[in-house]
Nucleic acid binder design. Sequence first.
DNA 1: GTAGGGTTAG
Length: 780
Amino acid sequence: MRHATIIKNGSPSFDPFVTRLLCSYAYLGYMADALRLFDNISNPDTFQWNVMIKGYVDKGFFEEAFEFYQLMQFMGVRADNYTFPFVIKSCAGLCSFVEGWKIHCRLIKVGFDLDVYVGNSLITMYAKTGCIDFAEKVFDEMPMRDSVSWNSMIGGYALDGDGWKALLCFQEMMEFGIEADRFSVISALTACSLVKSVKHGMEIHCHVIRCGFPSDVMVQTTLVDMYCKCGNVAFSEHLFNSMFQRNIVAWNSLIGGYALNDHPHEALLTSVEMQERDKINPDAITLVNVLPACAQLRGLSQGKSIHATAIRRGFLPFLVLETAIVDMYAKCGEVRSAEQLFEQMTEKNLISCNAMIAAYVQNGQNKKAMELFHNLEKGSVKPDAVTIASIIPAYAELALLRTGRQIHGYATKNGYSSNTFILNSLIYMYAKCGDLQAAQRIFDSMLFRDVVSWNTIIMAYAIHGFGRTSIEIFTQMQEKGLKPNGSTFVSVLSSCSIAGMVDEGWMYFNSMQQDYNINPQIEHYGCIADLLGRTGDLEKAESFIQDMPLVPTSRIWGSLLVASRNARNIELAESTAERILALEHDNTGCYVLLSNMYAEAKRWEDVDRMRALMKKESLEKTRGCSIIEINSLTCSFFNNDTSHIETNTIREVLDLLSQKIGEGIRTTPIKFKPRDILRTEASLPRSHSVRLAICFGLISTTVGAPILVKKNIRICDDCHHAVKMISKVTGREIIIGDSRIYHHFRDGLCSCGCSTLDVIHSSTSMTLQGYQSRVQMTHH
DNA sequence: GTAGGGTTAG
């Protein structure tokens, strides 16, 4: 009634009823009503302006709050020491350092910067806008500080991610004689989570119990969160169960904690329990916390149902949740669903783009990853360390040294030359691109090496055929006191397999379970299957695969297939190929391997049958191709390729080398019927792509320089032998990277120390692709 | 009438 009269007649600013009504509206958050009343005040005073600005800030309408302040200035109304904390808070809410800084400058002129409330707001504003140095300066120069000043500074450091500084500040505060209250404790506990120091966390926990606020829900929730983030889930559980009252934040903390500590089942169960026990429905944050659990379980159906819940409950669009869903789809192998969601997202930021780049890379879509990376680079958002660490494996997969060096240069240029994540990726990239020395150089240069760094360098030597060196590095790693993890043993067992170290392989397989309490995963079983296959004890290999507690993948059966090929056991090869084709009907390698075995046994009808089958499945034998990089140019050669501009010189060198290494001009390959030989000139080992590439390398590089050739399929026995000889007669080191490992040929010997077989892609357990995904999983 | 706090994506 009175409001209506005021609207009709207008009101002078000094009516105390008007002010009280305005306060009530603002206090209750009825800002539309407050605004209508305010508009009818003829000359609002500073207090009334302040009420409006505070009202908007409290509702989270920072833009409106800031506009009101600007309008106030425009109207010539003097701002007072109460105005500024609200305005500064609105700048913090808008994440606008520039506006905040301008206000700060104005404050200094009018002398309000000495006000403790103003100073405290400035500290938080600078911390929230990412300028911790400014916050520190304000704190240092304050003429007087209260507990809020200290708490703001502790919280500011924690927000900045500098847990140690926050803890130091917390300690300093107490030494100063200021009692830690619940605000200080919450910030200090967040700091403990950041530095993962359960020791400091427990000290603060004791303080909480001593000081008499142990039943504060927020403090308890922060404690639950801290113990989880420090890896102590049991403590969190205990604390959580002893809580008098729990709200959704407490439940979410525990659920997130389970997911963080690789307890996906508990995470999912707890989200159900929350609904049953406390009748609390999941919110968007609950879903964000549960999604990684689905990813860990590769639980696509659970993940999909969470996506559906998010839509049904109206949680979308919500950037954080959408990013978590993209990540879940990617980790469950559903890159297409991840992509669809990403494309539909109305808002994107660096984190969501990074998630999509990683999604592509994890699923082998490296070209798309690079495309997104380049688009990001062209835009206004600058890639960060995570972007670069995510994209490097895509360049590694390309296996081109030139582009690999480019991305290394890019990382350095962007100031990440000492970032452990990135350097780990670079070690992998150089190893994958064939430059083992560069990989070693990076490892040597690192100031801080983590488990991933060691795992990667061990794997680097393994994929270059130096299994024994790998094991030596593993010993060094243990001597340095680093605790190996599951990925370490993938590297170690791969090394044993590559070097043919059977006894050691078994020893490490047992040791990882007994000494390190690590359950072997499919990759570890793969390594042992491969190792057993190598010993030629097919029965043992077969029974190992059949008895293993996990379902064998096609890759694991591939180890047995190669083993049966080596032992020329056609029956076993046939039955194993059947198992592989049941899992992967388009596995070209299987058909080609069987066909070659039949040819060796002169079973031409079966050879024809294989060819017919491949035709029926529309499969084509992978065309052998070799790549060599000369003066930043990439040259590809196919078998019997004559398209290169230097083809005549290459041929001359080829003939010369053939003579020198004692090969006849024409040898009859075993794999073709006599009448097919003319037709299959291209398949003569003498003109295999790898030799053409080597010859081109010999004439295009300085005498004595090493030659690096990459091949898409495995090098054949003939070429493997020939390259040994070529390395001897030319005195060059020749490095050949095939689909399995790198061979270092020097002075008539090869690093791999064993003969190889051709064409079979997914045959071994230690292919780089598999390792890459593990490395990435460890990263994120 | 002012300032500081817990769960959240790569």
